[in-house]
Nucleic acid binder design. Structure first.
Length: 600
RNA sequence: GCGCUCGUAGCCCAGUGGAUAAGGCGUCAGCCUCCGAAGCUGAAGACCGCUGGUUCGAUUCCAGUCGAGCGCACCA
């Protein structure tokens, strides 16, 4: 609808210029907005004000000329007025709105879709937690946001791929292996201290215990299954199942077997087993949370395929990498970073930044026009250096966005829950989902801008009251489902599908004349614009805000008017309206990964 | 010290240049013989952290300042 108004204004300006009423044919960057106050109309534009300087006329004068030139052959405008410093307000006729109800019934689940993305290939990378421990609440917020952003972009016509980057290389994986190995040694009765710099969590003990209890043949069965399911990314040569099996007694316990191995080898086996196990757990938890990735990408694979070295060489040949103090430095400072950064240390080992450069180069080489990373706010210091890598590899900075998600405070009944990864005391995402449910958790994560920190209170999230916005919205969906059921029981509808037939009859829709009904339709009509804006600014929470206002408009209507009345045609028209509300609620919740229940 | 994000009602939060700053919680007063009260209606409550600047117009942009969180490795 905004576009319709905008075209009217643009055409009127052109006409006025042609007729010599306006000195310039310049079309400024105007806004068509929905005014805050209803008595300012359905839409208003600042055209006259932003044109004042180029037209060299007072805004109100321009507005008068423009109004005289507006053409409205379909009569969708009831009234136009000039207000304040030069706003032009448009009051639309009710008949302008009814076609949106038809459109919702026609398009169903695809109402709100657009092709603004024009098939541009975009990758959204999110979560990407190290496979050294289970996901926690912070990962949950990132998962909800990344998933929703991906959904919204896809709905807006982008070709979206969701990806998880697995940091399966480097020191933290060795530490993981050592942690499991040492726990295993303790289980086997060795008298050692468990070091502080190892992972302390109970899940490490569980994994050690598992290894301890498995026989060698069982172990290989698990390892090989796990490889097939989890680790298609992993290079064959590195895989645990490639170890020499001939020195194994199939019935011997893995614990005994590992004890007989040199420590380095035992640690490596523990590391790979544990990383696979934990990654499988992460995958399961994400599925329970409603998140599915299109691709799982291994950091190790970048080393195995030589892409890290390739990236370094490429940058050397471009002259953006130099040697100093025995290390290789990337000139990130000349791309806007605070200082240059090391990519290869003087001991010959690459830094994490080196594989990050290779990974981001790889993303674009895979054909993505646009890359979006979702990071925890504690990583904000890396934006500049990744930007540097993007530019140095010949891409444009606009092709890369980082969504920085501020941290989550976990509370229970208003009191902070102690969270310390080092001590292993933390609440996992799985525990949260089990306790409060997927829908409530996701909805809370998406309830506000990721620019702000979030307090997540387990008690509040669990309550099925007005405190909890998810039920407020889902309730609308369930309530409408209840009304339709009722209508069928009373024989008003023989089949719910009949409603869509009625939607084609504008004469019947015209019976929707109550102010609350028009307000509902206007809210429904703005859904595509909300999606467009959300995709544009990469902020999913505005879909949340929209859902709240739509739900509010519906509840207000419901409490004031009966849908099922003695008037047959009016009843059909209202059924039509509430079913379109149900559809849009469904579409919006779907984008956020929240279910739309028929009853609750 | 430098950088990033954020300061809007007792509490939470929306609003990325427009006309009287939007909701929710909490408080107070009401609404179920009637399609689902997980709902609705009304009242009270805000010099949009502070000071300047840009603009016809600033909660919004810029500079400074105060406060909160998070970062500032040849760690990952």
């Amino acid at each position: 609808m905004k576009n319709v108004i905008k075209n009217m204004v643009t055409n009127a300006a052109g006409l006025a210029f042609k007729n010599g009423l306006l000195p310039s044919d310049a079309i400024p960057d105007m806004e068509i907005e929905e005014p805050r106050h209803e008595n300012h109309g359905d839409f208003s534009t600042n055209f006259a004000m932003v044109s004042a300087s180029v037209q060299k006329m007072p805004p109100r004068k321009i507005a008068e000329i423009l109004l005289a030139s507006i053409e409205d052959p379909d009569g969708i405008i009831d009234k136009m007025e000039i207000a304040g410093p030069g706003f032009i307000n448009f009051f639309l006729a009710p008949k302008a709105w009814y076609p949106f109800v038809q459109k919702i019934h026609q398009k169903g689940g695809s109402f709100g879709e657009s092709n603004t993305g024009q098939g541009i290939k975009v990758q959204v990378e999110f979560v990407s937690a190290n496979p050294t421990g289970p996901l926690h609440i912070g990962h949950g917020r990132g998962a909800a946001i990344g998933d929703a952003v991906g959904n919204i972009l896809a709905f807006s016509g982008f070709d979206v791929q969701k990806e998880y980057y697995i940091n399966d290389s480097g020191r933290q994986i060795r530490t993981l292996g050592r942690s499991v190995w040492l726990r295993l040694c303790l289980l086997l009765g060795k008298e050692i201290e468990f070091p502080e710099d190892c992972y302390q969590g109970d899940y490490i003990r569980d994994i050690a215990k598992e290894l301890y209890q498995l026989t060698c043949s069982q172990y290989f069965a698990v390892a090989s299954k796990s490889r097939n399911e989890v680790s298609q990314f992993r290079d064959e040569k590195k895989d645990i199942s490639q170890l020499d099996k001939t020195d194994l007694e199939p019935t011997a316990s893995m614990g005994e077997y590992l004890l007989g191995k040199p420590e380095a080898e035992a640690v490596e086996i523990c590391a790979k087993y544990a990383a696979d196990k934990i990654l499988q757990g992460i995958k399961d938890d994400l599925v329970d949370f409603g998140v599915e990735f299109d691709r799982w990408f291994s950091e190790q694979s970048l080393y195995d395929s030589g892409k890290v070295q390739d990236a370094i060489k490429e940058f050397q040949s471009k002259g953006v990498i130099y040697e100093k103090d025995g290390a290789l430095w990337f000139k990130t400072e000349s791309f806007g970073d605070e200082k240059d950064r090391v990519v290869v240390r003087n001991n010959g080992l690459t830094t994490y930044f080196a594989s990050d450069i290779a990974y981001h180069t790889e993303k674009f080489n895979r054909g993505f026009d646009r890359v979006i990373d979702v990071w925890g706010a504690d990583h904000h210091g890396y934006i500049n250096r990744i930007n540097a890598a993007i530019e140095a590899s010949g891409r444009k900075r606009e092709q890369f966005d980082v969504i920085l998600v501020q941290l989550v405070n976990l509370l229970r009944g208003g009191l902070p829950v102690a969270m310390s990864t080092r001590s292993g005391e933390f609440v996992t995402l799985k525990e949260i989902v089990d306790e409060v449910g997927k829908d409530a958790a996701r909805f809370i994560f998406l309830s506000r801008s990721y620019d702000s920190g979030l307090d997540f209170d387990l008690e509040v999230a669990k309550e099925q009251t007005a405190e909890n916005p998810v039920y407020y919205v889902q309730y609308v969906h369930a309530r409408i489902a209840g009304i339709v059921t009722k209508a069928c029981e009373q024989g008003i509808l023989s089949d719910p599908a009949d409603i869509s037939e009625v939607a084609n009859d504008l004469q019947i829709l015209r019976l929707l004349a109550e102010p609350e009904e028009l307000k509902l339709i206007k809210t429904l009509a703005s859904f595509p614009e909300v999606i467009k804006k959300s995709a544009d600014i990469l902020h999913p929470h505005i879909v949340f805000t929209y859902l709240m206002s739509l739900a509010s408009a519906f509840h207000g209507y419901y409490n004031r008017h009966k849908v099922i009345t003695g008037h047959k045609e009016l009843t059909m028209a209202r059924l039509c309206l509430v079913c379109s509300v149900k559809q849009v609620i469904h579409n919006a919740l779907n984008l956020l990964g929240v279910s739309a229940p028929e009853r609750m």
